[in-house]
Design a protein around this nucleic acid. Structure first.
Lengths: 349, 349
DNA sequence: CTGAAAGCGCTTACAG
DNA sequence: CTGAAAGCGCTTACAG
């Protein structure tokens, strides 16, 4: 930052006062057209960039928001970030992104750094570590500063903050119902994320839809596993033992594995085995056949989150809003059609 | 930012001067242990967060770097960002990420915002728009401020800046050579990105390896297309007309499409048709069989880029460094083995 | 229409 | 060991 042109420099060169330069650059009606022109021209010529730090010392806001996400390799978070950015730039805000690598310590550091940078508000999706330990002291400290904060996706409901998250329960129900409606008689719920709240919601959603259809005459099937090493065997056993003709997989990766493994085992997809996964990522789309999924509507979540934050920044209404987004079912190649004609169909928006 | 505790508040409460508070918090040897303890305790208790803006107004550096990437949904950029973050946090730097959505205007705004936020340095990968129009005025303006800048991946070689990028030419050569070595006689080069510099380098790399093997006795085959609408037909025609037994695809998506389409057309992969793509993303790994690829070593690119930037920040050596990263070949399920025994092999690091 | 002055929250020589 | 004072680059009442 050394040697940058500042207002004083400009003032000296133009032989006017710093006040005049400042006002001219701000297009104040106090200043004459001619002076404004001269000042702006010179500022342009010397590549003057106002020092946001100094400015915000006075004006107390920066038109910048900070975001803390667990990572930026998940397609899901990438899309959420795009949703945030789009909405934010519409309102003239710059978005500063940081990620925690799912570590509490890094999350704390990011949060502190964003506060230090005087962001006007913060959007956060918690790290796995914070979620597992239910330790939210970092954010609680910041809440004392009355900085507007909105949680998204990985939220913590006990915190008195606005939030936006998915209705995972409903997503799983919808998927299960669709499988049932297209003729599946024996649907297994496959999950490697049973210990997370999201995983639990999806499980309950499946269970509920299943019970609505069968009561207790037909038992649900849960296939739970924690690593992919013996995936093939686990799946094969489950498929044979229970005679499954449908799988609802609680995440994208396990759905892809199911698809590939089932084919290896000689199953036709979707005629022998229909599959629905979660998350509409690149893996799902590029699989063969393309995977039917419950979409998490990531972009929408991002724009909603920013909208909530902006609301919080402008109004002082103290009631916290918990926004729940309804998932969509994207039907592609791994599910049978409802109607007789076998048309590939994709429900959008 | 309203109502946050500041040094003056602390000083008033503790009945010492602001100078003392400032020094105590900075652990200055001038201050007594007892005072330091009291000050820190109170600061903690009131949730005092130093105002980075005010601080940097004096000290002129912020231990923060800014990054501008085209997007955060490409797995590649996600990984680069993780590489940057990891290296940066090792040295106590915070990373502020912005993305341009491949738009010049947004890129300019991000750049300006980062400068305003007094980052100590900037890492940039240019937007498609800037690359296409070869318009780099935004960055050139910032170069006047003697802010350290390093370009990565989407670089512009005419700019007098440090850079780190991939040797795409070599990657394509390596891949072609491997296909030849495993017995492919007729290899096609498939590309939807012929108009980018990256696409051109890969094409040349293929061409060179091909010529080394065949001279002009066996003609190379180029399959170039601009959209995926009639992909199946384009590929099918090429495959039949030229009797291809190998494909080098210039990007991840077209490789996946080739894999899926070839299978639909009745080809066995890799025995009838071997395929190598570019970029080691989730699509490549989750494909069936897993796609052999030229990996772009994204994380390494990120850490290298930060290392270069740090160098630039500390030393005033004016010679610019153009770092070229050597690609790796990741051999998986879509290529035949070199040796007789059919062992799936993955070359790493 | 222009300018002098105070002040944002911090740091840092300098004095005591 | 502690404090008064100047100053970082900007904005904004206030005076002229």
């Amino acid at each position: 930052m050394a040697g940058m042109t500042n207002i004083k420099d400009l003032a000296a060169i133009l032989k006017v006062s710093p006040s005049t330069v400042s006002k001219a650059l701000a297009d104040s009606p106090e200043i004459s057209m001619e002076t404004k022109r001269r000042v702006k021209e010179m500022a342009d010529c010397l590549g003057y960039v106002p020092n946001h730090y100094a400015r915000s010392l006075k004006s107390k806001y920066t038109k910048t928001i900070g975001v803390v996400v667990p990572n930026v390799v998940d397609d899901f978070f990438g899309k959420v970030l795009h949703g945030i950015e789009k909405e934010a730039s519409k309102h003239g805000f710059t978005v500063l992104i940081t990620f925690s690598s799912d570590k509490k310590k890094q999350e704390v550091r990011n949060l502190a750094s964003l506060v230090n940078h005087c962001v006007d508000g913060i959007l956060i999706s918690f790290s796995k570590e914070a979620q597992k330990t239910e330790d939210y002291t970092s954010i609680q400290r910041i809440m004392n500063h009355s900085l507007p904060i909105v949680m998204f996706d990985r939220v913590f409901n006990d915190l008195a903050l606005d939030s936006v998250s998915m209705n995972d329960y409903q997503g799983a129900s919808m998927a299960t119902e669709h499988l049932l409606a297209t003729g599946c008689k024996k649907i297994g719920f496959l999950s490697s994320i049973s210990d997370t709240s999201v995983g639990q919601s999806r499980k309950q959603g499946y269970l509920n839809a299943w019970k609505e259809q069968w009561g207790s005459t037909n038992k649900p099937t849960f296939i739970e596993f924690s690593n992919y090493n013996n995936f093939k065997q686990v799946l094969s056993t489950a498929l044979n033992r229970h005679g499954l003709d449908g799988i609802l997989a609680a995440d994208e990766l396990s759905a892809i594995y199911t698809l590939n493994t089932a084919r290896e085992l000689g199953f036709q997809v979707p005629s022998d085995l229909a599959i629905i996964g979660f998350t509409d990522g690149p893996m799902a789309r590029s699989a063969f056949p393309a995977l039917s999924v419950v979409s998490q509507q990531a972009e929408k979540m991002g724009s909603k989150a920013f909208a909530l934050l902006r609301n919080r920044m402008t109004s002082s209404n103290s009631k916290k809003k918990k926004t729940i987004i309804t998932p969509e079912l994207l039907l592609r190649g791994t599910t049978k059609s409802l109607i007789v004609k076998d048309v590939e169909r994709e429900i959008k928006h």
